[in-house]
Simulated assay, not measured.
Amino acid sequence: MPNTSRTPHVAVVGAGIGGLAVAITLLRKGVAFDVYEQAPELTEMGVGMHLGPNGTRVLRRWGLEPLLRPAAVRPETLEVRGQDGQLFVHRLMGDVWEQEYGAPHLTVLRSELHAVLGAQVPRDRLHLGARLVSFDAGGDSVQLRFADGRAAGADLLVGADGVHSVVRRAVAGEENPVFSGASALRGVIDAEQVPGLAPDSMYMWVGPDARLLCVPVEAGRRFTYVAVLPDRCPSEESWSETGERQALTLAFADWHDDVQAIVRAADTPGRWALYDREPLTRWGHGRSTLLGDAAHPMLPHHGQGAGQAVEDAVALAHFLDGTPEGLRRYEDFRRPHVTRVQLGSRDGGSLRVKPTDGTADGGLDQLVEDVSWIHRYDVEAALERAAADV
C-alpha cells in the first residue's frame, strides 16, 4: 500500500544547493529522507554567486545567516562604468537594500554556501558516488537504480540533479537547450591584485558587446568576476569547462586600467556557454517531481539560481503529504513564479545595462525594477496567502 501519511520517505537525487536545501526543509519537518549524489565527495565549485533578499530571508529563518555571513559580503554600493572607466551610476546597497527588501543581498562563493548547507545534513543521510541511471515512480512506491549496481526505494522522488537531470529527462524527454548567443568566462582573484577596487562594492563595466561584472567574496579578501561575451561557436552546456585567458585579453584589450588588472590577475577562467531550457508544463509524473535547475534552468542575469532553488525547497516541504497529489500542488504553486523569473532572465537583469553618454542611468534603474519584485517575494508569506484563498 502507498504511504499516505504526512511523513513519507523521500529520495532526493542531487546534493547541490537545491538538493541540500530540500534536505534541510525535510529535516525541519521531521520527514525521513536520503540524498543521493553522483560525485564521490560533497563539494561545489568555488566561483562566486549572488544571494538576493528572497533567498537570504529563508536562510535567516533557518538560523543559517550567522554561519554564512563570515564568508560572505553584503555589498555597500554598486557601480556601473563604461569601458573607459567613466562612472555612469553609483547606487547605495547595504542598509538601504536591506531596509527596502527586508533581508540582505549577499555575495558569496558557491562552495561556502554549499558547505554551510551541507553541514546541516546528517552524514548517514548522504550517499555519495551514487549516479542515478533509472527509476520507476509510477506505482505505489519509487524504485531507484544506480550505476554501481545499488538500488533503493522511497515513497517520493525529488530530482534536484541539475541541468542534465536524469529525473527531468523522464518527464521532458530529450530536449534541445536554448543557447543565448553568449558565453561567460569566470573566476576568482585576490583583492590585493586589484587595488583600485573597494572590497565592499560590486562593479559592472559595459561595452557595446561585452560586459564584465566583479563582486567581492570571502569577506572582501577576494573578488569573483564574470565576463559575458558574444559567442558564435558555443560549446556543450557545462559548468566545469575551462576557457582561455587570451579570450579575456582580446575582449577587454582597450578597456580601463581596473579591467586590465582583473584580466592580468585571472589565471585559467572557467567557461560557461549560457543555455537554458523552455519552461515545462509539468515537473513530474507519479511519485516524482523536480526542483531547482532540474525544474527551471535559467540564465544568470537575475542572479537567482540559488534563491529559486531555496524557495522551491520551502514550497515542496509545505505541500509534502506522501502522495503524488501533494507533488502536483507544489508544482502548480511554483511554476508560474519561476517561469516568470526564468523567462525574464533571458532579456532582463544585467542585460538591460547599456553604455550611455553619461546623461542617463545606463539601464540600471530598469535592472533594479526587473529584480525588485523577485527580491521582495516571501515564499512563506505566499504559501500562507495561497492557503487562505483555498
Rank of each mutant, 00 (worst) to 15 (best):
M204C: 05
M204Q: 10
P208T: 13
P208C: 09
D209M: 06
A210M: 00
A210I: 01
R211Y: 15
L212Q: 12
L213Y: 03
L213W: 06
C214E: 01
V215F: 10
V217Y: 04
V217K: 08
V217W: 10
A219V: 02
A219Y: 00
G220T: 09
G220L: 06
R222V: 04
F223V: 01
F223E: 00
F223D: 01
F223R: 00
T224K: 05
Y225P: 15
Y225K: 11
V226T: 07
V226Y: 07
A227L: 13
A227E: 12
L229C: 10
C233Y: 01
P234L: 04
S235M: 00
E236H: 06
E237V: 01
S238F: 00
S238C: 02
S238H: 04
S240W: 05
S240L: 07
E241H: 07
E241F: 02
E241N: 04
E241K: 05
T242Q: 11
T242W: 08
T242M: 11
G243V: 13
E244R: 06
E244D: 08
E244A: 08
R245C: 15
A247E: 12
L248G: 13
T249L: 13
L250F: 07
L250Y: 10
A251H: 04
A251Q: 10
F252R: 00
A253E: 12
A253P: 03
H256G: 04
D257K: 01
D257R: 04
D257T: 03
D257M: 02
D258M: 15
V259S: 09
V259C: 14
Q260V: 07
Q260W: 06
Q260K: 12
I262R: 02
I262E: 05
I262A: 02
V263R: 03
V263N: 02
R264M: 09
A265Q: 07
A266H: 01
D267M: 10
D267H: 10
D267V: 08
T268Y: 05
P269W: 00
P269A: 00
P269V: 06
G270D: 06
G270P: 12
R271C: 13
R271T: 11
R271F: 13
R271W: 08
W272F: 14
W272E: 08
W272I: 12
W272M: 14
A273P: 11
L274C: 14
L274V: 12
L274G: 09
L274S: 10
Y275A: 00
